[in-house]
Amino acid sequence: MIELLQYPFVVRALVMVLLLSVVAGFVGTCIVIRRQVFVAGGITHAAFGGIGIAYFLGVSVTAGAMLFASLTALAIDILSRRKSLRTDSAVAIFWSLGMAVGIIFMFLTPGYTPNLMGFMFGDLLTVTRSDLYIISIIAAVAVIAAIIFYRPIMYTAFAPDFAKLSGWPVAFISSAIAVVSALAIVVAIKAVGIILVLSIFTIPPTIAGMFAAKLKRMFILSTIIAVVGSLAGFVVSFAYNLPSGAMITVALVAMFLIMKVFKYISIRQKRNV
């Protein structure tokens, strides 16, 4: 197994898994505590619209997806904050619109048969050097912002109305988190695919939330869980030549089930003492 590290694409995949875990741990925790898992799902699928348009125009797919996903994230954020539209309805509209736009533009692109499976399920072995630069920047921004703005992130997620009365820029923080989430999601699509992005952003924080009483611990614990789960999934997928994104999802869900049982047993034992 170790000798595989002489292949650059394997090393790039591993670095991607580690950095993606950091992003998932920090950004994913924000998504989960703000109860925006479904919003993240909408942004993920809306990104596909950007991918389709970028292919049609012949420009950078990552840039197209990032722009489209960020605008969608902002639109959902603003619409749901104004309460002019129910959040889940707004999400559903952008979710399906993104998929529709994406597929239409892909069909319009002359002479190109896009690898749809690649977008849907991702492939860690196709990660490029520039993907790694992008995810490094996002990981750094996420971690530094989480340290500096730890308190406003916590307060505005827990009690937005009270935070607003206390003079915190609730709308700005909400939009900023939405845009960073959108950028993180686009990078994750490359690795684990549109269908499976949600698993890496939501399962580790959900497991961490079962054990962490403090937001700090939830950030760190979900990063560790994401590292363990995605490394395990990646190694198994490589060994048995299975799709990496799907294997990572299965590994994370397996961790979730094990931890749930562990928690259940430990609570029962405490009661019996």
Binding site: I148, R151, M154, F162, A163, S166, G167, A213, K214, L215
Partner: peptide, 19 residues
């Protein structure tokens, strides 16, 4: 929500260094 009682009280801070 992962917030302690202490942090809930602290979230009422209005002045000074709030970060």
């Amino acid at each position: 929500f992962p917030i302690t009682v202490r942090d809930v009280v602290l979230s009422g801070q209005l002045d000074g260094n709030r970060l």
